[in-house]
Design a binder for these strands. Structure first.
Lengths: 111, 111
DNA sequence: CCCGTTCATCGTCTATCGCCGATGAACGAT
DNA sequence: ATCGTTCATCGGCGATAGACGATGAACGGG
C-alpha cells in the first residue's frame, strides 16, 4: 500500500511525465514540508523528535509529513535503534530542480 | 475574495517565506496545470477553448485551473473580446525555479 | 434580431489532505 | 522487570481540492 501519494483517478489522463513532475511538486507544496527540508539540511541528527521540537506540530503529524517526503523520494529514511534517521536526498532534490528548469526553458525557448 | 489559493489556518505557524514558496509549488502540483503550462508555452493562441481541446477536461474545470495559475502569478490573463488570452509569465516561473535552486543549494552547502 | 461560440462562476458531490489524540511496538536505562 | 522515550500507525474530524453540469453574460455572424 504505497498509496499515500497516490494520484486521483482524474489525473490519469495526463501524460506520465507530467504526473511524475506534479507528484514531486506536491511533496513540496506544504509549508511544513519546506521547513522540514530546510531543517534536515541544516542539522546532523535528523530524528523525528528534533523536527517535532522545531515545528510546533504534533508528533504524529510530523511523522506523516516525513513519510510523504520519503515516499516522494526526496528524503532518505534509515531506522537507527529506536530512533529514525532522516536525511535529504540531495540528488533527488536537484533532479526536481532540473525538471523545473527544463519546464522554464521550454517556456522560454519554445522547446 | 481572492481565496482560491488561501492557506489553511494551520499553515500560519510556518515562516512567511516557506508559506510563499509552498504556495507556488502548490500551483505546480497538478498534472493538468503542468500540461497547461507546457501547452501555453508552445502555442500562440492561448485561449481557454484551445486548452480544453488539448486536455480532456470539462471547460469549467480548465477555467478553474487557469484561474489558479493566474492567481499564483505564473500566468498572465488578458480579456480579448469574447476570448481570454492566457500567457505564461516567464519571469515568475523563473523566479519559482530560483527559489527551488536556492533550497537545493541550502541543502548542499549548509546555508 | 436571433444563434452559436466562448468563457467565468455557482452549486454540488466525492475524495483527499492535514490535523490531532490514542495506542502499541521497539529500545535503553535503571 | 519496569519505566521513559521515540516513533509509526490508526481512526476520526473539519476543511479543501478537483471534478462536473448548468447558467448567464459578452460578443460576432447570419
Amino acid at each position: 500500500m504505497t498509496d499515500s501519494l497516490a494520484e486521483p483517478d482524474h489525473a490519469n489522463r495526463a501524460p506520465p511525465e507530467s504526473r511524475a513532475v506534479a507528484a514531486r511538486f506536491a511533496a513540496l507544496s506544504h509549508p511544513a514540508r519546506i521547513e522540514i527540508l530546510k531543517h534536515l539540511s541544516a542539522s546532523n541528527s535528523c530524528c523525528c523528535r528534533e523536527v517535532v521540537d522545531h515545528l510546533d506540530l504534533a508528533q504524529s503529524t510530523v511523522s506523516q509529513h516525513l513519510k510523504i517526503l520519503v515516499e516522494a523520494g526526496l528524503v532518505r529514511f534509515q531506522p537507527d535503534r529506536q530512533r529514525s534517521r532522516y536525511e535529504v536526498d540531495r540528488a533527488a532534490l536537484a533532479d526536481v530542480s532540473a525538471s523545473l528548469t527544463a519546464l522554464v526553458n521550454s517556456c522560454c525557448y519554445g522547446r
